[in-house]
Design a protein around this nucleic acid. Structure first.
Lengths: 360, 360
DNA sequence: TTGAAAGCGGTACCAA
DNA sequence: TTGGTACCGCTTTCAA
């Protein structure tokens, strides 16, 4: 067996039988076997420049490259060209059911352009986010898609944006000038609340997510904007979940039901998990949904249509959002002037059986 | 404003106002400002070697580095050291609900070691998988975690493993010698089927996932192994889903119910989505679960405990599986002899209300 | 159409 | 403890 490179093989003699995987052919190897200069080999293998090489030598190089199983070293290339071909994506939590469809759309667009997506989770921890942004900076990602921002992260995001283009997805940040694609949480909150009011409900509660996340503050704003236009009123205003989980939804609702004073006849939960938790709490209190209390969720999570009762909820335009975010991120790669406006896609109301007219 | 590097700034004059983000300080800049050789700066910034530098100069270098906001160029470093610090993870579909907890565990371990996880989806398409493996190869990932393999991918995986250590997760591949961590699908299939048989069911059907995926063939094997030990028999053996979705579960079950001959009194669905689809089909046929037919799912997806009726299912040891996979992948980075044995973690049965004793 | 030289930003190795 | 040199693998620029 001929060793094209003839380097580093002595290690075999010295050490114990090492895996032979370490080396891998380089462009130099390909060039040597083809009897050309590395530059020529480089040109032949680059579709954008292969026209500079005679058809004959091009074919020879291509064939040898294939025979050797040559794969360019992306790090060497990136170092030289200044572009890593990586887009960094920061999410709060992959298991949040609205994310996968968005990720899928983004990845589709990104990979179509020959780039790769680097995904990392913050678990809504600001320090973790900073760590991740550091990683991304060191890897010289070409752009960052950030869908894990809290309002308090403004300065951190600004710092990251100083060295790498940043696009905000899903969650916006006030005060910064970042290109953003989200969906209209305020409208979503309005749709949910309006639906309840139209069903005749006058005593409405909401289960709020953390208010320093734009998604949740937007939903709250929508909720209040509808109340302001009607005679309906909020019951129990302090219901903010530390994290918007099933368990928190259950706990907050149990508190709400146990509190003295009026009981709501409808609840707007800021996501489906909390809505489901609310259902649990009702059941434990001997109440029934929707007979005693109507519930609206948010996100239209998988199986939300199969729970008992099927959940009325708000659906996001996930695929469209993902595509837009990806395209926006790609636009940042060119030297064009950056559009820092915010795109807000409209969500829609999905009516199922967890909501019903108020029974006098 | 002083430019430490003094390079490439003329571009500003020439072109239109460009983003000033392109440059970023280099090690050379740090060294120059600190009045030392780049080598010394490199050592000072590497915790493993900073003891080779006098405390005084070390502090100076650290401070200047911080002031400049210096971030090492990971590509340059990797090129020289031969290690990219990336682990490539190939999954079939991020939205598959059993994945996020596994990803989380893997990411936790990986990031703890200072590495990053590169995640890509195949959508169960073999060509896409090859593309992804190509990407990973070019980026010189230090190891690949593959949880998207089909039995037919043996050669492709082997090829990838020739240049990069590969660890199989969740799905195993017959015939190759790859270190593997999965859970025991055969046992899971047995637990589900045994549960049904113990409830008195004699006419049992299964909704099978694609049989070229080890997860599903394992579950089938478990199913049949229990039948062979009892007097129970399978109803309608040809029920293989093209993809294991709610809709496919509904369709196959509708077919099953419409077929002439005996009707099963229990169904083992190879995942929760198909189980839910089966429930839909029952309802459409005017039947009730579990009164007429008991149903067992697989994976214990989020909200599986809240659907109507709450789903009896099999739960995977996701976090443990993720940790093991990650550790196994990290082990491959050292030159140790590789352990190619397969670890199979035990799943557990979660009994809810979609299964009930056979009513004579 | 091809080649030569330089350099991207670091680190390994050896010398001082 | 510090510096000098070479080089990781590729692409760019300029010359032939």
């Amino acid at each position: 067996m001929v060793d094209a490179a003839g380097r580093r093989r002595d290690a075999r003699q010295a050490g114990a039988a090492m895996k032979s995987r370490d080396a891998g052919p380089t462009l130099k190897d390909v060039a040597a076997l083809a009897g050309v200069h590395p530059t020529t080999a480089s040109r032949a293998l680059d579709p954008a420049k292969s026209h500079l090489v005679s058809e004959e030598t091009r074919q020879r190089i291509l064939q040898i490259s294939a025979e050797l199983g040559y794969q360019v070293n992306a790090m060497a290339r990136s170092l030289r060209t200044g572009s890593s071909g990586l887009i960094g994506m920061v999410v709060a939590d992959v298991s949040n059911p609205f994310l996968p469809p968005i990720l899928r759309a983004i990845e589709h667009v990104i990979r179509h352009e020959g780039l790769m997506l680097l995904i990392a989770e913050t678990h809504d921890d600001s320090r973790t986010m900073q760590e991740i942004l550091g990683h991304f900076a060191r890897r010289r990602v070409d752009a960052i898609i950030l869908s894990a921002a809290h309002q308090g992260d403004l300065e951190v995001v600004r710092a990251a944006a100083a060295s790498t283009p940043v696009v905000l997805a899903v969650r916006s940040v006030d005060g910064g000038k970042f290109p953003t694609v989200t969906h209209d949480d305020r409208l979503g909150g309005r749709l949910a609340t309006q639906h309840l009011v139209e069903l005749g409900h006058q005593d409405v509660a909401q289960l709020r997510g953390p208010e320093d996340v734009s998604s949740f503050s937007g939903r709250s704003a929508g909720f209040y904007s509808v109340l302001a236009e009607t005679t309906a009123r909020e019951v129990g205003s302090g219901l903010v979940a530390a994290s918007p989980t099933v368990e928190e939804g259950r706990r907050l609702t149990a508190e709400l039901l146990a509190a003295p004073g009026d009981r709501p006849t409808a609840i707007f939960a800021h996501n489906d998990q909390m809505a489901v938790g609310a259902m649990d709490a009702l059941r434990e209190a001997g109440l029934s949904c929707p007979r005693d209390i109507s519930i609206v969720g948010y996100n239209d999570a998988p199986l939300a249509d199969h729970i008992d009762p099927p959940l009325t909820t708000i659906r996001l335009p996930a695929a469209e959002l993902g595509r837009r975010v990806a395209r926006l991120a790609l636009e940042q790669l060119s030297e064009e002037p950056v559009d820092t406006s915010t795109v807000r896609l409209p969500p829609e109301l999905v009516v199922r059986r967890s909501t019903a007219p108020l029974t006098a």
